[in-house]
Nucleic acid binder design. Structure first.
Length: 759
DNA sequence: AGCTCAGACGTTTAAACGTCATTGC
DNA sequence: CTGCACGAAACAAGCAATGACGTTTAAACGTCTGAGCT
């Protein structure tokens, strides 16, 4: 708890996740030590199952509350704050720390523990990830305990574990989370967030957004001596209301700068401008009874009536005002900050305030929450819809040739609080000045504090459809800031890496290098590699989240079916609800559904099952590519997907498939691949004279593959922290793992070829 | 008896629709 | 004190949009069969 104390927190809690064995439920006890004292012992049966549902997905976890400890489960924090393809400690560490740990599945742990001294020793090495280990039974116990705890990798104070003076400074499963915690400045940001919203830190992980808003509301209400009704409004089962407008996207490749005009914090500023709140909402009867003059009320586009702030200032606008002022202050501080660490902390602070401000609107529209008020939320969105249409009209009416400008402005797209305008001017600089002019002009037509800001220019700009676009982002006219992509495969997690890399690379070549032939060439060579089976398996792994249990799905989906099959194969290693399921598509009978062709990548590697390159070409690569190339290249489909590079394919047949049981294996010539009789063994009559050359080639091939495998093996040994042990790691997230397995297989095959020379 | 052709019936293809995962704002 | 049945309490930001894929429905197509004609 060293880091917690450092932060000056009075209340400390620890959260422990324990995998329980059904036979020992009840008599297994867990002691929590701290500075030589037993703080607490818990019966495992006291540990509660908790089921977290909501926007962060459904996930089961076990927890036990211990007074005096702050619980901070990094696993949960990670899932909330970052969108990753995998949340294993391994892959997260690789992502943020560029460091990995060996990934031994917990189902192997008991085998290692129950084996002999050597296997237990092996387990200890894994657990400690350190050369300094002792093979005493006590350490073993602690090692396995450590592992069980780390299955959901919470912070475990390394100091607590070390208080008996041992030199076990490398509890890796604890060390990595702590490194992550420091690197991502979780404590600092979460303390900040807790202060701003007025909730305990544990709420930030265990509960949702609405508790934060409620907490602020309660705080404010107390100041004003108001009470908040406890009862949920009856009959609020009407569900949804109309949301924001998304302007029609005029898809295409724009080679002129596109200026982006954004409303600053649209929904919060609407609520402030029109004084929308629970306590300012009045009915038409109220207006009549109280004899409210019309100049004291606002009627929203959705028909609701709110009194103006001179009569009664709303609580929500007040909260928002505070949040936004604080955010502005945080942003100003951020600008002054020089030190990268300080910068990151201040950025986290302003982000927290922004999120808080935005969820106030969401809180009023949540029909299942404590205090729904659809009058407010639908008023907010109706104002928003009106404003974006108004903005579009104003831009297109004012910036015209008739009005004295060089070109007619055109709004090509807009979503909720932004419009993308093509002013027609050729340079970024000119677009920027027009953008600034437009923002200022249009802001003047709205009530304070609603403000339209000019933020950035996209040039060039590739608009694919609503919520899908890419472009180079410019905030100053000298140099573009970065390539920005929204909604397309580069930012989505449900595609394989191959698609992601390919699309990213193509966009890079098209937008930055402006090298369209280069992009085409790259696509062609990638497709050729794929069809020739030269693709690394890790690039072909698709992951999708398992959001509910198998029975609750109404239609069959690849990842769901695979999870079911894996459960039947081995329930221990199968993915659970909330996990992301990695899979690859394998060859199967023609016309087979995708869910019949999905398979666990590790299973594929171990059983030498051929993947289906055609599927990847037709169902993964082709459509995303065409969407990008279509606006740029005519005949894109013909050029990219049906060229000569698609001709040569490598056909792999599964050795264990049904039909192959009836086929007789026949040798082929090592030189020219012609079929030869089994008596010849090595080469056909044509290649007879080249035997020496061919033999050398085979030997070279074997030694090359041996070197590659050796290199990968060493790398994995390095990662597990010992060069004297077998590599046990089976991480589905590690590209080295796939390459190592493949190299091993290739090497074995090459050796078989070599053996044929021995008569 | 042999041929033709409408209609029944089975199979393939296409379109419409719904579910699911994911992202944008 | 423990186990069981039962009821109460607690919990959950929003909507818009795309695209992949499975399922259902409709349409097109092909084959077969038996009535009717020559």
């Amino acid at each position: 708890m060293r880091f917690l104390r450092r932060c000056g927190l009075g209340c400390l809690k620890i959260k422990v996740h324990v995998e329980t064995c059904p036979h020992h439920k009840g008599d297994l006890r867990l002691d929590i030590h701290f500075e030589h004292r037993v703080l607490l012992d818990i019966k495992i049966s006291d540990i509660a199952d908790s089921l977290a549902k909501g926007q962060y997905g459904t996930r089961e976890s076990k927890e036990v509350a211990i007074e005096g400890r702050v619980q901070f489960d990094l696993f949960q924090a990670m899932q909330r704050d970052y969108k990753l393809s995998s949340y294993s400690l391994n892959s997260v560490s690789a992502h943020f720390l560029a460091e990995q740990k060996e990934d031994v599945h917990h189902s192997i742990i008991s085998d290692l523990q129950n084996g002999n001294a050597e296997t237990r020793r092996r387990l200890a090495v894994y657990c400690l990830k350190s050369h300094k280990y002792k093979t005493t039974e006590a350490n073993m116990m602690r090692s396995s305990l450590q592992h069980f705890n780390s299955e959901r990798w919470q912070i475990w104070n390394t100091n607590d574990m070390n208080t008996n003076g041992s030199s076990l400074d490398g509890y890796w499963d604890a060390y990595l989370p702590q490194r992550l915690l420091d690197k991502l400045m979780y404590i600092y940001n979460y303390v900040e967030m807790a202060r701003v919203t007025g909730v305990p830190i544990s709420f930030l992980l265990s509960r949702g957004q609405s508790i934060k808003v409620l907490s602020q509301l309660l705080r404010k209400a107390k100041q004003k001596n108001l009470v908040i009704p406890n009862a949920k409004q009856a009959g609020s089962e009407q569900g949804t209301y109309e949301g924001a407008t998304v302007l029609e996207a005029k898809a295409g490749f724009y080679e002129k700068p596109i200026a982006t005009l954004d409303f600053a914090s649209l929904y919060p500023s609407i609520m402030m401008a029109y004084n929308l709140c629970y306590c300012t909402l009045v009915t038409p009867e109220d207006v009549r009874k109280l004899n409210l003059p019309p100049e004291c009320v606002n009627k929203t586009p959705s028909g609701e009536i709110f009194v103006k702030s001179n009569l009664q200032k709303g609580i929500l606008p007040e909260i928002l005002e505070e949040l936004l002022t604080a955010r502005r202050r945080a942003k100003a501080d951020l600008k002054e900050a020089k030190d990268p660490l300080e910068k990151a902390v201040l950025d986290g602070r302003q982000l927290a305030l922004k999120i808080s401000a935005n969820s106030v609107y969401g809180f009023t529209g949540a029909t299942v929450a404590q205090l729904p008020c659809l009058e407010i939320s639908s008023s907010v969105t109706s104002y928003g819809r009106q404003m974006i249409e108004h903005t579009k009209k104003l831009v297109e009416d004012r910036f015209t040739t008739v009005g004295g400008y060089e070109h007619n402005a055109e709004v090509v797209y807009g979503d909720t609080d932004s419009v993308m305008v093509q002013f027609g001017v050729p340079t970024v600089e000119a677009a920027m000045s027009l953008g600034r002019e437009a923002a200022e002009y249009i802001s003047g037509t709205f009530i304070k504090p609603i403000k339209l800001e000019f933020e950035k220019v996209y040039y060039p700009y590739l608009l694919i459809s609503k919520k899908r676009y890419a472009g180079l982002l410019w905030t100053n006219s000298n140099k573009f800031d970065k390539m920005d992509t929204k909604g397309i495969e580069t930012v989505r997690r449900d595609n394989c890496l191959l698609v992601k890399n390919l699309v990213t690379e193509c966009l890079h070549k098209i937008l930055i290098d402006q090298d369209i032939p280069g992009a085409v060439q790259f696509v062609k060579s990638t497709i050729s590699d794929l069809l020739m089976n030269r693709m690394d398996l890790s690039l072909l792994v698709i992951t999708k989240g398992l959001t509910k249990t198998g029975d609750d799905y109404e239609v069959k989906a690849a990842h769901v079916e695979l999870a079911e099959r894996m459960r039947k194969r081995d329930a221990a290693t199968a993915p659970n609800v909330g996990d992301r399921v990695p899979y690859v598509i394998i060859k199967a009978a023609k016309g087979a559904k995708a869910y019949e062709k999905s398979e666990d990548p590790i299973y594929v590697l171990e059983n030498n099952i051929p993947i289906d390159p055609q599927y990847y070409l037709e169902n993964q690569i082709s459509k995303p590519l065409l969407r990008i190339f279509e606006p740029i290249l005519k005949n894109a489909s013909k050029e990219l997907l049906h060229g000569s590079h698609t001709r040569s394919i490598s056909i792999s047949t599964p050795s264990n498939s049904g039909i192959m049981k009836f086929a007789k294996k026949q040798l082929s010539c090592i030189g020219c691949k012609a079929l030869i009789s089994n008596t010849d063994r090595t080469v056909c009559s044509h290649c007879k004279g080249r035997e020496a050359e061919l033999y050398c080639k085979t030997v070279d091939n074997v030694s090359e593959l041996e070197m590659l495998f050796g290199k990968l093996w060493t790398q994995c040994q390095d990662c597990q922290g010992s060069l004297h042990q077998d590599v046990l790691c089976t991480s589905r997230d590690c590209p080295i793992f796939y390459r190592r397995k493949k190299a091993q297989k290739d090497m074995a095959e090459a050796k078989l070829q070599l053996d044929r020379w021995k008569f």
